[in-house]
Design a protein around this nucleic acid. Structure first.
Lengths: 137, 137
DNA sequence: TTGCGTGCAAAGGTTTTGCATGGCA
DNA sequence: TGCCATGCAAAACCTTTGCACGCAA
């Protein structure tokens, strides 16, 4: 009796390969669907949602809901599900999602846990603001 | 020729008064609609959306899209659009949105700006994790 | 052969838009 | 009286679910 995730399919493989090829980039379901349609290797929308959901559970992929509220974004996470010492900053002007490596982050986590009892998951948190380039304008 | 927002209506006034009375609390459109329905002072859903949109533009109200993706949350902002020294933490287990006042926040803001050139808007950022109560279980 | 994965169609939910009516100034 | 605001209905979206068929093991 095979469990969930027992089978290996063409769609699953191609989807993961695609995401893996673009680490740090974020994609919407619509973008993914269009990408494969253009390549004549269409994958059903439902399947994309279901595979992404599985990848998120596994920790292979991370899901974001940005403030624009349009649709969710999915991003392949290179390293282990920890993704520690790693900020996600979203620029509200140019829309870019920026990755920052930073020690300060660990301090903040300790502080939140020690002083406020809040176990912060930095990997799921997106910092909103304006990036260096956009401030220069 | 009056411009947008020229008129003062019952719905507008009651909605703002309601939000003002609960600073720091967040409401969904559905919650707001139900609140006024129960009071026999129903406000159309469309109107709620349109008024909230206006308040957000004015900076009177802040809009959040949480990771759950259910529906947007709106919160009255007491003071100017800065909302400094104020964390928003969302517990992923009980779903509560917690407000933390903390000096550490200012330090982090300075660090992000100085070291990484990122002008962080703490008021728009939600920290995801698990709260003290849920960790105790 | 077994039963998971796929994808169409349809449902579900939130948010937006069209349009006739209502109400403020 | 002029024109914005309202709210119903319907559309537009994104996402999830039901179900029959296909395919991996």
């Amino acid at each position: 009796m095979a469990a969930k995730g027992a089978y290996h399919t063409r769609q699953q493989e191609e989807l993961l390969k695609y995401l893996k090829a673009t680490p740090g980039e974020h994609h919407t379901v619509a973008q993914i669907r269009d990408h494969f349609s253009l390549q004549q290797r269409a994958i059903g929308t439902t399947t994309i949602y279901r595979q992404l959901e599985r990848f998120v559970e596994e920790g292979t992929v991370r899901k974001y809901l940005l403030e624009t509220g349009d649709s969710a974004c999915y991003e392949y996470v290179e390293h282990a599900p920890a993704c520690s010492g790693h900020f996600h900053c979203k620029c509200e002007q140019c829309g870019r999602l920026i990755h920052l490596d930073c020690d300060e982050l660990q301090e903040l986590r300790d502080h939140l846990l020690g002083e406020h009892g809040f176990a912060w998951d930095a990997g799921r948190t997106v910092f909103y603001g304006v990036c260096r380039e956009c401030r220069a304008d």
